[in-house]
Amino acid sequence: MMLRPCDVVLIAITIWLTLANIARAFIRRRILHASYLGVTWAIFISFTIADLFSFAVGNWILALLSFVALREYFSLIEVRIQDRLAILGAYLSIPFMFYFVAIDWYGMFIVSIPVYSFLAIPLLITLGGKQREGTIHSIGVIEFGLFLLFCLGHLGYLMRFSSWMAAALVIQVVVCDVSSYLLRDRLRSLLAETIARFLVPLPLTISVALLLSPWTGIPTRHSLIHGAMIPLLVIMGHRTADYVQVDLLGGEGALFPDRGRVLDDLKSFLFATPVVFHYIRYFLT
């Protein structure tokens, strides 16, 4: 099998992330502890496997990652005993959705969560018990968790178009995150910080998009536009997820695997993945 240069780069990134993860296990330094090495590593492993061996396996690795994210989310929310059936339904939505990604049935994938799961959850809540109080709250809370899952499903479908399209998106998001990490608490007003968080990574994300366009296959014009979109989407995702996180965790203390760490790692993807995916799907396929 002949490896193309793009494959080599993908493998190199994956190996580098693997080593960094091993190093983290030994060093346990705080900066590494808080960084999202684990999630990025899982995502890149799935890209590499999808690229080189089998799309299905890569896809199911993403499904596992969704399971981890969903489990953490459900561990943080308050659930009543009667919501347990609905939570089982939410977990079962993972294979339900990723199956349609695996067999490339776009129409069904795109309605799987927003139509079928979103209808099934309220029904399952009513089947779980007799208490009517708190139903709306439970529906909302559980379905937001499903939306996180839907987000990763989009990443999976993007990976189906091309591993490098998905990889480029992840790299661009990481660039945004690193720059916003470096910028935090440096500027006085929230507005200034938001603008800086948009303007600083902007040239970087655009150049990443342009640089990778031979591999992603996105034409220059669209690379420019979607490279410019990403910082904005990341800011939106951060803002939304921050509110959710503070509500879930009380907004202080360190993040642990069961205390919002995976959610924290995925928050930048909340808006970026679906919007970029639909942009690419609409204009380019």
Binding site: E72, F74, I81, D258
Partner: peptide, 9 residues
């Protein structure tokens, strides 16, 4: 009171 085992941390 529940027989359904679910994954939670």
């Amino acid at each position: 009171g529940s027989k359904l085992l679910l994954p939670f941390w």
